[in-house]
């Protein structure tokens, strides 16, 4: 018996390889998530303990620990504290590769006068807002 073109049996044999490949493709795809941090997170509460005009460098180090960097500014100095948080997400779909990286930091700079008394303090806390995302996402959107 000869089946007419377009019959069910003919369609099944015709589509079988394509269906098999379609089922195979998801198994060939890959995704990856990576999370990298540098230094310990900074404590907002501890930074609030610092008072310009009264806190000394010694007291600041006692509260926040050793700085990541010390910059000499003539007879004055500045201490840097930072914590870096990076989240990377990648999706590989055979011929398509999507990748996103979002890196943010907590940063605190302490400025001391020649007597090692804190004069100015600058702080940015953003590490906690780091996101895993795909490239079409605006991670800095409010």
């Amino acid at each position: 018996m000869i089946e007419a073109p377009g019959s069910n049996a003919c369609m099944k044999s015709f589509l079988l390889p394509e269906i098999a490949l379609l089922l195979l493709v998801p198994w060939l795809s890959g995704c990856a998530l990576a999370h990298t941090t540098i230094n310990e997170p900074l404590s907002f509460a501890q930074v609030q303990e610092l008072e310009p005009g009264t806190t000394t460098a010694k007291e600041a180090v006692k509260i926040l620990g050793a700085p990541a960097d010390v910059v000499q500014l003539g007879r004055r100095s500045a201490y840097r504290y930072d914590h870096r948080n990076s989240k990377r997400a990648g999706l590989f779909l055979v011929l398509v590769f999507l990748f996103n990286e979002d890196t943010r930091t907590d940063r605190v700079w302490l400025f001391f006068d020649e007597n090692e008394v804190l004069t100015h303090l600058g702080a940015t806390f953003a590490a906690g807002q780091t996101e895993y995302a795909m490239p079409w996402t605006d991670v800095h959107e409010d």
């Binding site: 398509v96 590769f97 990748f99 996103n100 990286e101 979002d102 890196t103 943010r104 930091t105 991670v139």
Partner: peptide
């Protein structure tokens, strides 16, 4: 085809 996005700060 690659879509690569990096945001730092």
């Amino acid at each position: 085809f690659s879509w690569n996005k990096v945001s730092r700060y």
